[in-house]
Design a protein around this nucleic acid. Structure first.
Lengths: 203, 203
DNA sequence: GATGATATTGACACTATGTCAAGTTGCGGG
DNA sequence: CCCGCAACTTGACATAGTGTCAATATCATC
């Protein structure tokens, strides 16, 4: 691995991103990446340890470019738990749409590569944290539907908002991303937020 | 591929099952299977076209042994939509616990193998059908929470009851299977079934 | 014009899948 | 008894993709 953040390095990262999006993360070989980036296959190994390292570096690059922090801001600055939850779902939906191909690729190699698994799990943990923050806020307002523990509600919400879930609904059920947002918001609010403006059968 | 349902064939299938459970579906090679079954590696190819074919055959064998039909009976014979949903969730939870390792293995190869993908999708479709049946029944009783389409509710429930979701909650969040059943039932009923005995804030 | 970092080229080792051909074992029927 | 078939073994081989290594080329810059 070379030290500097060279031009070539960035070009490789951009290429990986592009190829992963084009091929939904599947069947992209090291040689494909090299060729598309206009370098030799070995040049890739000059900059990255191995395939896993390359993919992980790409996700970091994407985070940087996409500005994940900024994406989550509306959720973090929300004034009440319900809107925090709503905004978080919006943010996740957009984010997943951006990282789709790479996520699928990472998801695949994490089965066989320990480092990739760690990288993936870290990300999942971050999302879980976001879920937890929303649930905590809802609970602190006394609006968590009775019967839920904060932990249990967080786990369930986390599962509902997982990439796999998004992928199934978007690519398996052909939902549009705004449908995903609307429906998942509805289910999450029904399931976890008490005291909504009607919407259940009580009217 | 040989014709008869020989002893060896069954022994191989049992071995695959066992190894998949032991290793959570990961890193099980054709040679491992052969060795554990006490046959040569080539004997495996005498009975099965390739790895994908073998794994798919194993799932069929498991279905047969586990009696999937019987497992779903309580759900299918339920008298109302709400209990149909509850029973379906119980059945899925048990089933997932039984097929865990194999499911993970299939999940992995379906990315690269078209036939495996088809086999997996078929199973998913069957589960979706079960979700749809419960939702239909709930809707026909006029108890589907307002705002849902049958299709949308089915998709969401299907996603909630996916193997990936179960796996995340059981192996990622360390839930016990009865916790899974209880919590997922609760969320599903809150989300989709109107007119429950209170449980929301209206009291 | 030597130095060091960057890149190329081609050869190679490794792993796992799947294929092929030749040989073995066991068993039932003529 | 032995023919022949089916099931199985053995060992060699092709292939695909990853990762490694060594020798060489390019080029800026001091």
């Amino acid at each position: 691995m070379l030290k500097q953040k060279s031009d070539t390095r960035t070009r490789i990262l951009k290429t990986v991103w592009k190829l992963m999006e084009e091929n939904r993360g599947q069947g992209v070989r090291m040689s494909d990446i090299a060729k598309a980036a206009g370098v030799s296959r070995q040049a890739v190994y000059l900059h990255f340890d191995d395939r896993a390292d390359l993919l992980i570096a790409t996700t970091h690059y994407m985070d940087e470019v996409l500005g994940v922090e900024k994406l989550l801001e509306p959720s973090r600055t929300a004034l009440d738990g319900e809107s925090r939850l709503r905004e978080f779902i919006i943010a996740m939906a957009h984010h997943y749409a951006n990282i789709q191909g790479m996520a699928q690729a990472l998801l695949a190699i994490k089965e066989t590569d320990a480092e990739a698994r760690i990288a993936w799990d870290e990300r999942m943990e971050a999302i879980r944290h976001g879920c937890g923050a929303a649930i905590d806020m809802i609970e602190s307002e006394g609006r968590l539907v009775q019967g839920w523990t904060k932990d249990v509600a967080t786990d369930l919400l986390w599962s509902l908002l997982s990439f796999e879930s998004w992928d199934r609904l978007i690519n398996g059920c052909d939902w549009k991303n705004d449908e995903y947002v609307a429906h998942v918001q509805r289910l999450a609010e029904h399931g976890f937020v008490a005291g909504q403006k009607d919407s259940s059968q009580s009217a």
